[in-house]
Write a protein that binds this DNA or RNA. Structure first.
Lengths: 332, 332
DNA sequence: TAAAATGGTTTAATCGATTAAACCGTTAAC
DNA sequence: GTTAACGGTTTAATCGATTAAACCATTTTA
């Protein structure tokens, strides 16, 4: 059964498609006779008419569609963001296309291209390592986009992110304030700016406390095989005398806690722990985690707000950093 | 900067758009002179041409797009499915539109309508309570779709789901086999068939073990305010003498375990626990959970496979139930 | 009474592709 | 030497909307 088109309605009613379009879009209000308008509306309803967005998009050059490129939709952090973006976009009548780049620049580029081919009106990007140039190019091509969570400070364009330096500083400071002086850092070896900043914050806190940087207390891991490398890193840091651990992302802490669960070590007595990012399931750890909470809801909504503004007026650039909240519980 | 169109290339090269289209789509192979073909390809590259999918879709009546309606993308189960669907769809060059229906029939209908307006080629649906009629209508309208995970047995069309009855049966049987006879069931009051089946499986297992159904050991909760209702239900079941708990979904167990964590009760000694659905974070519970694992990867891929087949030939209906795997660990 | 305004509707171009059919030289076939 | 086949390319219709401009009756204004 073919969907009914404007033409079908026009034929049935005996008018031109133009008139049908005007009526159904409430254009030319008042200039159309009540009687015919009603007949058109009635017929449209009866024939179950729904506008073909593809055709409309082609003409209007607007798809009412937003592309969301994230790391991995099955990661709780990504999916939490996705949900906020979805809701905020829907409220403005936008639909979301999504794709997982898996920290892979190639996939990232592919997704951006695919979304652009589909003429998305804008992009929300959580870019992986190594796509700074691509971001710059998007900017130069005047593609409306917002970098969310992760970003390239040297690349121009809109940014919504955490104040990662302060967050890292605060996390380390908390540990220091509880008398810990040998903070083991579990981080990614990533060059991603937001992760670098977290680490810098941690280092700054240590320095201010008179503690010189100690490489043996820092583990920087590749994105792959974390199931193996995180436990190994923890073991190494413990051997090197760490009295506390600071996980710089939720992926790291999720795996790390599972390992800690199996060690004959008590948190927080033997080892204090602080992590990034909220996750209700981390509550299941026997010592509920102390963590740095990102205001995801706010950040996601802001990102959409900025994107919509950028779609209106590409000149308008916004770069915002939100503060993290230190949620203190039992682990530190 | 406007994107370059076929017309732009045609003008530059001095040929018709038809020829450009033929070349770039590798149609009419051999009937086009090598020299011109190369010039066209070269120019397309130089002008950074990318085909406008919207225009292409309008003409070909194919959008290479699939709509995914799930419960809530931020729920780990949903996002795990989403990831599988994304990958499987991408492999066949489809892009995924997604939306969260939040167990709300109204939202479900809205999403389906929006996706259809966007001319998706097919739908993967995880429908909420109360949309059986809508599913039937989709079928009658020959919209290609697959119900995944949840489904209406009375509604026609493709289905990929778990063998929920057997899964429920197996979960309860395990508890019975460890000597538990008072199994507390924590379920949704939902009419959703897949959840009903799980409960029926549990009941059947109990009956076969000579244990008559005891309503005081069954808690059926609404989808809202689970943070309050799950703990309350657990307390009630324990008071009624439950010696084990069977959570019928991951949402329920995630919240339930957090409560158990705070009770002066040891799992599995005082209370055995079995849950549905995998979730690596549930490992953080001090007694790693025994659970019924759904073959999500297989199910998702099968769903896409069936959907693609249905898009080719709507006559071909498939309904499959996959077996769950009982993963036994410490909690039971 | 002629010109202008108004109301109601249609015409036709357009968005950017795809594709069957037509076209027109050459070359091959009989 | 006429016809047929072929190779290479263009013409033009089409997908389903949107929308400026044109059109044509009335009615109002000067």
């Amino acid at each position: 059964m073919k969907r009914t088109s404007l033409k079908d309605i026009a034929q049935r009613v005996g008018v031109s498609t133009a008139l049908v379009s005007y009526v159904l879009n409430n254009k030319k209000e008042g200039r159309i006779s009540k009687a015919i308008a009603e007949r058109i509306r009635e017929t449209a309803r009866a024939m179950n008419y729904r506008t073909n967005q593809i055709a409309k998009s082609l003409k209007t050059n607007k798809t009412m569609t937003i592309g969301l490129v994230l790391a991995d939709i099955s990661n709780p952090f990504s999916s939490a963001i996705a949900r906020v973006i979805e809701d905020a976009a829907n409220e403005s009548r936008y639909t979301v296309l999504f794709g997982s780049a898996d920290e892979n620049p190639e996939r990232f580029r592919r997704l951006v291209d695919i979304f652009r081919d589909r003429q998305v009106d804008g992009l929300i990007l959580l870019p992986p390592n190594g796509v700074g140039e691509d971001i710059r190019r998007l900017y130069e091509q005047r593609v409306p986009f917002v970098q969310l969570d992760r970003y390239y400070p040297a690349s121009p364009g809109n940014v919504v992110a955490l104040d990662n330096f302060t967050a890292g500083f605060d996390g380390a400071s908390l540990l220091l304030s509880t008398g810990r002086s040998r903070i083991g850092l579990i981080a990614f070896e990533s060059q991603l700016y937001h992760l670098r900043q977290r680490k810098l914050g941690y280092q700054q806190a240590c320095l201010q406390a008179g503690i010189p940087p100690e490489p043996s207390l820092v583990a920087e891991l590749g994105v792959h095989q974390l199931e193996k490398t995180v436990p190994a890193a923890i073991d190494k840091l413990l051997k090197n005398g760490a009295d506390s651990l600071f996980f710089l992302s939720n992926t790291l802490s999720a795996i790390g806690l599972r390992h800690l669960n199996q060690l004959p070590i008590r948190v927080p007595d033997d080892l204090a722990v602080v992590s990034f990012d909220e996750n209700e399931l981390l509550d299941l750890f026997y010592a509920p985690l102390t963590y740095l909470q990102q205001p995801l809801e706010q950040m996601g909504r802001k990102a959409i707000e900025i994107l919509l503004a950028a779609m209106e007026n590409p000149q308008h650039i916004t770069r915002i950093n939100f503060p993290a909240t230190l949620v203190r519980r039992r682990s530190a």
